[in-house]
Amino acid sequence: MALITYREALNQALREELDRDERVFIMGEEVGYFGGAFKVTDGLIAAYGEKRIRDTPISELTIVGAGVGAAMGGLRPVVELMTINFALLAIDQIVNTAAKARYMFGGQTKVPLVIRAPQGGGHQLGAQHSQSLEAYFVHCPGIRVALPATAADAKGMLKYALRQEDPVMFLEHESLYGLKGEVPEDEYLVPFGKANVMREGKDVTIVAYSKTVHDALKAADILENQGTDAEVIDLRTLNPLDIGTVLESVKKTARAVIVYEGWLTGGAGAEVASRIYEAAFDDLDAPIQRVASADVPMPYNRHLEAAALPSPGQIVAAVERIM
């Protein structure tokens, strides 16, 4: 095992797939000579050249649309959107084309396109640069949604994304890029649709994904000191959603808290809660709790921002409400 950052893990995944498959290429704003706004593609243009590492104009709609066209034309594009906030300029091509081309054309084409985008708050970037928009894409059938929480998953899931055949929103968390983690030395893939039980426990199930997995693990440590044994599940992907692992856990603990950084209302966690209620209502001893971002545009002020985001303290409080 090697100890590397989430950012380095993504960079390694891209290098390995660029080496493996000539059809793989990267395009996006500042991915080349700048090395990526968050330095994920650092050094790639020197190693692979302009044909495979392509700087684009600021044209999100056409960057994604051209990615769809190139994928339908037989390539394996990795499109980087500088942040998820700019995906809203491209949402027509994501929702109306990438997610639908296969179905509406009678299964006669495929769109193996990976759209990478950082998201999340916590850096005082204000209302237009702090969003977590996974629910927008989870709502739409036809496109996978992956949100790695660790360096090992960042690498293994990105490599898997480039080997499967469907379009993927690959959502990275800005706060995780510098996070170090153990990554296997040998080649490995992390398939979609398999949740990861990060910590076993018997009293309550905390379901999380992306950065909130780490908040949940911190909350579990606090709860342990209070005598509550929490199980923490990292969903890894929201589409496909591994509800089986969640239900199995809830049947054991009879309590569930769902943690996500998107807004509380209409968030992906609401879908998880519904699935639990539909399939395991009789196993529950208490109502499901959600911990998410406050329903406000993100404020700049750091105290207000911290209050708007989910935190370990809020997760502990949510668990205490139902114990």
């Binding site: 649309g65 051209a66 769809v68 066209g69 190139a70 339908m72 390539l75």
Partner: peptide, 22 residues
């Protein structure tokens, strides 16, 4: 393909052309 969002086919055509040039 026929694309039913006005202007929606142009980025697709651009990407297909990119795959040809690639």
């Amino acid at each position: 393909g026929g694309y039913a969002i006005v202007g929606g086919g142009l980025p697709i055509a651009t990407g297909l052309a990119l795959s040809i040039a690639y």
